[in-house]
Every structure is written in C-alpha cells, then in structure tokens.
Design a protein around this nucleic acid. Structure first.
Lengths: 200, 200
DNA sequence: AATAAATTCTATAGACTTATTGAATTTTGT
DNA sequence: ACAAAATTCAATAAGTCTATAGAATTTATT
C-alpha cells in the first residue's frame, strides 16, 4: 500500500529518486506542459499509469524536481559561505559549484529556473524560500567583502548578487546544451569578468 | 480570401500585428505548450477558430512571435554599431537598447528566449540567423575596443559577448516581471559591473 | 510454502485542444 | 445600393492527455 511510502522504505526511496531524475530530464527537454506523463514513464521504463504510484500528479512531479534541484544546491552554498577565506576565493567556489551543478545535477536546476513559475503559488513556498536563502547568502558575502575593503563600496549588493545568479544560470544552460565547453575555463573567465570587468 | 494576405493589405497587416502581440503576451505568460489557441483568441477578442485566419498553426504563431521579437532588435543593434563613438558608449547604448526592449516590445523577446527551442529546426532558420548576427556584432564591437586599447586584451570576446547577452536577458525578464525596477539605474549598474567589475 | 504487502500493468473515463469547414456577417469597391 | 471580397463565427472531427481503478505480478515476511 502507498501508505508505507512515508515510512522511508529504502527500495522505494531509491526508485522515487530515479523517478524524480527521469522527470527532471524530460521536463528540461520538453518543458512542463510539453512533456507528458508517458514521456516520464518511458524514461523510467514503466507504464504511464504506473507513474502515479510515485507522484500524485504531474504538477507534484514538477514540484519535487524543483525542490530536489534546490536543496543540496543551497546546502552547499551554506557550507561555502561559512569557510573563513577571502571573499574572492569564496566567490570562485560559489561560481564553480553553481556551474558544476549543471553538469552533475541531472537537469533539475534547469527545470527549476525555467519551469517553476508554472507551479501554483502554494506549491512554490519551499522553492521560493530556498531561492531567497541562496541570494541572501550571496548578498551577505558581498557585504562582508566590502567591509573587508576587498570589494568596491559603490556596488549594489542586491544587483550584483542577482547578476551573478543570472549569469550563472545562462552559462549553466549553455554548459548543459554544449558538452564541449570546458568547465574550468568557463569558471575562470566568469570570475575574471565579475571581479575585474573588461575595461583596460 | 486569404490569398490577398500576401498583398500587404494595410488593414490586415495591422490586425495581424495585433495577433502577433496577443500571441506574444500569452506565450510569455503560459509558455508555448501551456498556452491554448483559445487563450490567444480571447486576448485578441475573437473566437478560437478565427485565429486560424491569421496563423496556419499554433507553431507558426510562435515562429512569427520570435521573428518579430528579433527583427528590429537586431536592426537597432546594426545601427548602434555603425556609429563612430568610443566602445564604452556604444556598449552602454547596446545594453540600454536591450533592456528597454523588454519594457516596450510586448514580451516577444522573452518568448524568443524561453520558447524558441520548442520550434522545429527549419522554423528556426531565420531566428537563428538573427541571433548569430547579434552576437557577432557584439563580438566585433569588443574586438574593436581591444584594438583601440580601451578594453583589456586578455578577455575572450565570445565569452564576454555571450555573458552580456545572458545578463541582459536575465535582467530583461526581471524588469518585465517587476515594473517597479528603475530602468536607467539598472543600465547604469549593468555597465559598471561589466566594465569595471566589483574588485576594489 | 503460504500469506501479506508492494509494485506494475491494462483499460478507460472524462477532459481538453488543434485545426477544419461551410455558413454568417462585415467591409470594400463600384 | 449592390456585388464581391474579407473577416468572423459556430460546430465539430480527430486526436491527445491526465488520472483512476481493479487486476496481475513481483517481492518480502512468517
């Protein structure tokens, strides 16, 4: 019976995880509305109707994909921000983590970025909280950098934080689309651009 | 008869334009697959079936929205790049034009960015050409700036061009979503970030 | 080995959507 | 004012999709 699903059966948990990854892959490729439950089931190797053993609805699947994509992403960010190293170095780690995520996290981040607004508002509560926490951590980091005299004091931390995230998402999507782009080179150039700009 | 549609009847052209704008608005809000032809027709104030007087198919509507969004966008870029002013100034105009576009162009640009990949490849030929032209113009501009000694010679023009576009799209979407964000302040901060970075 | 529980399957109802068609209406040209 | 052309409408065929339900199968437990 489905009721036991709450009781963290390890077999169930593992397949549920695979279901989320399958949904992430399909949603990333076709978009939430463009993807069918049959697409996801096929990706998982089961029949369309069987998918409802794991998700109550297609919308719930999207919600879980987005939450999955954000959770350890934010957790890692928390860890990076606690380390006591110069801001520049933390920033580089943050950017590296952000971009690496796109190569490892099975498209869940992309789905979060592109499709989360198709969720009803109450399904987005946790997702929004996680997103806000991430941006806030980044803003705090920048503020600390200014106070330490390492960063210019005329920047707007909110603007810069949002820009770094936006740029990270743009390059993340690019890295996913084109496997031939080198990750570490991209991280390097990303940091150079944000830290030093392009002016001679 | 529909045949006359090719003969640029000005009445027809005007309503066709409005049909494209209606489609853009609906696609931007609900996504291509999430939007129905009924949504678009309602936005236009006609019946669902009547929409097919203007578009042969829903997919063609998406194609026309994307092309509409890109055409004068690229045309303006061409104009800006021909002016003989310092690179920094051109760059600012480019960013200003890019961001202003999101406030004026009735969501067509957003649809282009988010939904164009749902089009079949052959429907994307012109769209792709326009996008490539835009990025190439930007890359040429950066190269000119380096040769003039105004920009650092260790930047990768392709990387920077792509970054400026990505950042512009991120802020464009943000400006659309939140009317209270000030355009000129955003342009200012954008330029400062890209030109000078954040390092003290 | 027998029983219980968990997982998957098949079949389908009930919506919803796109695109078409021919009729009705409005606009335009003479 | 009349006829032709352009535009819109109403109705619907044909297809797709989500979600459910009960049967069948597989896996775990005693």
């Amino acid at each position: 019976m489905k009721e036991d699903k709450a009781v963290l059966n390890s077999k169930y948990e593992e397949k549920k995880r695979r279901a989320i990854l399958a949904a992430a892959k399909v949603f990333a490729l076709k978009g939430f509305h463009g993807a069918t439950t049959e697409d996801i089931a096929t990706e998982l190797g089961i029949q369309q109707g069987s998918l409802y053993y794991y998700f109550k609805s297609k919308e719930q699947a999207l919600q879980e994909v987005c939450e999955f994509g954000m959770k350890d992403y934010v957790a890692r960010m928390r860890g990076l921000c606690q380390l006591d190293v110069p801001v520049q170095q933390t920033l580089k780690s943050v950017i590296d983590a952000h971009l690496s995520n796109y190569r490892n996290q099975y498209s869940a981040m992309k789905v979060h970025n592109d499709q989360r607004l198709y969720l009803s508002k109450d399904r987005r509560v946790l997702i929004k909280k996680l997103g806000t926490e991430y941006r806030t951590l980044l803003e705090d980091l920048l503020r600390k950098g200014i106070e330490a005299g390492l960063l210019r004091n005329d920047i707007d931390t909110h603007f810069v934080a949002y820009s770094i995230i936006g740029l990270g998402n743009a390059w993340g999507a690019n890295l996913m689309r084109d496997e031939s782009i080198d990750l570490s080179t991209t991280v390097e150039r990303f940091c150079n651009l944000v830290l030093g700009g392009i002016l001679d």
